[in-house]
Computed example of a mutant assay.
Amino acid sequence: MRCSKKIVLLAFCSVVLAGCANRPAKTEAEVNYQEDILLKAKNYNGLITMYRSWLKNNDTADSRIKLSRYYYLAGDYKSSLYYLQPLNMKNDVRVSILQAQNMIALGDYGPAIRVTDKMLQQDGNNAEAWNLRGVALALSGKAAEGQQAIDKSRQLFIADDVAINNLAMIAMLDYRYQDAVGLLLPQYLRGKKQSQILHNLVLSLVKVGDRRYAKNIIESENLSNKPDELIDALAAISPRAKGGHK
């Protein structure tokens, strides 16, 4: 997202380094340098501050899309959409992708599907549009259609870990946790350790009763310093709330 919202995958707390660059960037080279540092630290608040300052005198589509992207990554979906508004009339696939991602995160599945349909009218082989359409369909209650769309995105060579995580999400929506484990565990064993994959795998392992393996992953990946408490909390989760798609 790649690109949440009918499955509860526990919102694991992540520490985002606070602060921003010492002084506003004055040149594009300085922006790129500061952006690289802040990205490595996943300091999205710092990136937002930097690009807001930069946009005052350099309001370009590229910079505005980056600002919107960092608002999305920081979890401020309404602000992300707000800063995209001046670009809504532009035929830019990056804008459409961000719109759909934010709409899904806000639970606005119908509008997200309409955005992806428009993208597919322009390019029927847009793998990301099929992926996002599949997520929105699945989370709106159309799991079979969602799976078909995500399968299509995989045929179009979207990243395997993105497609597999989203297929696992659909399995979890249907309470098919063993299927989700079957999808995610091979990815984990191959070294794919993105947060969504880890969180979905741990939850699925707990739901199928493999608490020991879930605890091993929690400890080895430093997901919590209280693994037993986390497992108890996951065991009580209902899979009908907030999600973990990409």
Rank of each mutant, 00 (worst) to 15 (best):
C3T: 06
S4Q: 11
K6L: 08
V8H: 02
C13G: 10
C13S: 14
V15P: 02
L17C: 05
A21S: 15
A21W: 07
N22V: 13
R23E: 15
E28G: 14
Y33N: 14
E35N: 02
D36V: 09
L38M: 15
L39S: 11
N43D: 14
R52W: 08
K56R: 15
N57H: 13
A61G: 07
L73N: 05
D76A: 10
Y77M: 09
M89W: 12
N91G: 10
V93A: 07
L98P: 10
Q99E: 14
L106P: 05
L106T: 12
G110C: 03
P111M: 10
A112V: 01
I113R: 05
G124V: 00
L132N: 10
A143Q: 04
A143E: 14
E145H: 02
E145P: 02
G146E: 12
A149S: 13
I170K: 06
M172V: 08
L173I: 03
D174H: 01
Q178V: 01
A180R: 03
A180S: 13
V181I: 10
G182R: 03
G182L: 04
L184E: 02
L185H: 14
Q187C: 06
L189C: 07
G191I: 00
Q194I: 07
I197C: 03
I197G: 02
I197L: 11
L198I: 09
L198D: 04
N200V: 02
N200K: 11
V206W: 00
K207C: 02
K207L: 00
R212Y: 09
Y213H: 09
I218N: 07
I218H: 04
N222G: 01
S224Y: 07
K226D: 14
K226S: 13
P227W: 01
I231L: 05
K246Y: 15
